[in-house]
Amino acid sequence: MKESIHKYFRVGTIQWMSHPPVSYDLLDSIKTIACDDFFDALEVTQIKDDTLRAAAKNLLAQSHLKVCYGAQPRLLGTGLNPNDIDEEGRKKAEATLMEAVDEAEYLGAGGIAFLAGKWKPETKEQAYAQLLKTTRNVCGYAKTKGMTVETEVFDYDMDKAALIGPAPYAAQFAADMRTTCNNFGLLVDLSHFPTTYETSKFVIRTLRPYITHLHIGNAVVKEGCEAYGDMHPRFGFPNSANDTPELLDFFRVLKEEGFFDAENPYVLSLEVKPWGKEDGDIILANTKRAINRAWALLED
């Protein structure tokens, strides 16, 4: 493409993935990303310390970055399940998502994203009903603040084993949600397509009316190989499923399906993290090179 990717997308990254908190200081991470004008958006998550949260808010306010909020760690890190068939468990998950809406608002984000919880075949229909209840309640609360809610589509049997997807099931859920909540959408991630045994064309076309947010990344889906599952390794990682050709295909499908929107660009975030002792900043540069190459190969 002759035109810049930044014309059509707000290119972002996921702070806690790019700079895992075990190795990187939060404020240093936000400052590093905010000083890099390749990025138009930054996705942040729960900040438990009040002083640290206020400092993060101050940096984000200076940056002119679009701020997004991922509530996934609030669930993955605690075992809370928004589709828990135990009502008390479901309510606890709902409560943390309500808190996420408040924190997102404070940090300057326009909404939150989260994922469905684990499920069992014998209670799948009950779990689906519970997830609808949770998501509708959170959407209702978010709407009072003019905010949005997104469910990210994950694998259903490989690693996270979340209730939503694969893509056809995610489409059913989104359609049910949209009957009552017009502030709901889906977040789709290129790195999850191999984990749901689907292609970019199939996922994007199946979920076209409901997609409001995009992620790109990589995955290893060969059993027994290093970083197997939903681990988001760098592009070019051994035995992995996605690299520049798959990213180019993803861009082609997005272009064909009308996602290149200069007036209201979608957020397109990198969800790639360093593996082992890899350096987060080098992995960020790696991902930008893959994006730049795929974009350069995309036909006008």
Rank of each mutant, 00 (worst) to 15 (best):
D49Q: 07
L76G: 10
N239H: 14
G108R: 01
E263I: 10
P73S: 00
L80C: 07
G70I: 02
L115Y: 09
A104T: 01
G108Y: 01
K120L: 11
G12F: 00
S191A: 12
L248W: 03
A41L: 09
I204M: 05
Y24F: 08
I204D: 02
G185P: 08
A262C: 02
K118D: 11
D189Y: 02
D36I: 00
V188S: 06
A54P: 06
S200W: 12
C225K: 15
L107E: 06
Y128R: 12
L75A: 06
R205L: 09
S240M: 07
D249Y: 08
K124A: 15
V253Q: 05
A170H: 03
V272R: 04
P20H: 12
D37K: 10
G217P: 05
R205V: 04
K91S: 14
A54F: 14
S23Y: 15
F202G: 12
P166F: 00
A129G: 13
Q15F: 08
D102Q: 13
L190G: 06
Y210V: 03
Q15I: 14
F114Q: 07
S18H: 02
W119Q: 03
A127P: 01
G140N: 10
R74V: 12
K48W: 15
T196V: 15
T180M: 09
Q15V: 08
R90D: 02
A167L: 05
D36N: 10
A285T: 14
V22F: 12
V149L: 04
N81E: 11
K57R: 13
A290P: 11
Y266E: 07
F193P: 05
L270F: 13
I283W: 03
L59E: 07
D25R: 11
I33M: 11
R289C: 13
T13Y: 06
Y210M: 03
N182P: 10
M17V: 05
V153N: 01
L298Y: 02
G146I: 09
R90E: 04
E271V: 04
W119N: 00
P82H: 01
T123N: 07
K201P: 06
A241K: 04
G224H: 07
A262F: 01
R90F: 07
A241M: 05
K133C: 13
G236W: 04
W16P: 10
Y156N: 12
D249N: 11
A294Y: 08
Q15E: 15
A56V: 00
C35Y: 11
T151R: 09
V138Y: 04
A227R: 12
K143N: 14
T78K: 01
I47D: 08
G280H: 04
K255D: 08
K31D: 13
E263K: 14
A56M: 00
